[in-house]
Design a protein around this nucleic acid. Structure first.
Length: 262
DNA sequence: ATGTCGATACAATATCGA
């Protein structure tokens, strides 16, 4: 069973490339982030024609997350619990009704830049709420996967040059500690168990020739409950999609990251 | 010298967020 995550930076701007990749890689389940549209503008028919069920939590202009699945989806939760005033679409959760079910959580964690603003405070509060939800999910004793764009560089090995990231919200000690805190609850980062050969980055900035110079970072992660970690068989970072174009469509700045579960 | 994107309000460019 292949479960992927991809920050697509607008699902509609990316659609030709997405459909091409979904045909090739054929993930069973995929979390999308930054769909950048309201629910009514999500290209549901295009994905349904490839055999996917869609759960969408959209938003105008910014953010927006979705789950695509070849298996039925049930028990869908939209929005991260813990703050009714949070209006940003960054969290979606569903039960994937496969022969061996999986509870699948897709997140688009706040970027948090620049430091010293309410944006960074929002990121820290969001992390606290995610910690609480992650702890709650563990009590279900299910195979649970929390995946998505975490906007967190876990270690200095996960960026091309540490000095560049020291003043960035993606690499702050408090943020990295919060990520470790999720692991301390009992979640496993699939990358720690199944590091791929060669590339470890999942994002290359559009600017400053970052892709051409391989100046990337690893910020798209899969966290697995013990019941899910016991089934982990592999991890693939689809780096080639970063260099692909399709007619008018240009690549996302993130690439898909996929895990294989027994 | 952030050197690029995408959505939006707006009607060719500017702003915002990343």
């Amino acid at each position: 069973m292949k479960l992927a995550t991809w920050n697509v930076n607008s699902v509609n701007a990316r659609l030709p490339l997405l459909l091409e990749w979904f045909r090739e890689a054929a993930p069973d389940v995929c979390a999308l982030q930054e769909i950048k549209c309201i629910d009514e503008k999500f290209p549901i028919e295009a994905f349904e024609s490839l055999g996917y069920n869609c759960a969408v939590f959209g938003q105008k202009t910014w953010n927006g997350v979705a789950i695509l699945s070849k298996f039925p989806l049930s028990d869908v939760t939209k929005g991260l619990p813990g703050d009714d005033s949070d209006e940003q679409s960054r969290y979606i959760e569903a039960l994937v009704e496969a022969p061996q079910p999986v509870r699948f959580v897709g997140i688009y964690l706040p970027n948090g830049n620049p430091l010293g603003t309410d944006k960074f405070a929002y990121k820290l509060r969001w992390l606290e709420r995610l910690h609480a939800r992650a702890a709650q999910l563990l009590t279900l004793e299910e195979a649970t996967i929390i995946t998505g764009d975490f906007n967190i560089i876990p270690t200095k090995a996960d960026c091309w040059k540490e000095s560049v990231w020291l003043d960035d919200a993606l690499y702050q000690p408090a943020v990295r500690q919060a990520y470790q805190g999720l692991k301390n609850l009992g979640y496993t980062d699939a990358f720690d168990v199944m590091p791929p050969e060669g590339n470890r980055y999942t994002f290359w900035d559009y600017q400053a020739g970052a892709w051409q110079k391989n100046e990337g970072i690893r910020i798209d992660h899969h966290l697995l409950s013990p019941q899910a970690a016991d089934r982990l068989n592999g991890l693939v970072i689809h780096k080639d999609t970063r260099g692909r174009t399709h007619d008018e469509a240009k690549p996302s700045d993130h690439v898909p990251v996929e895990i294989e579960l027994a």
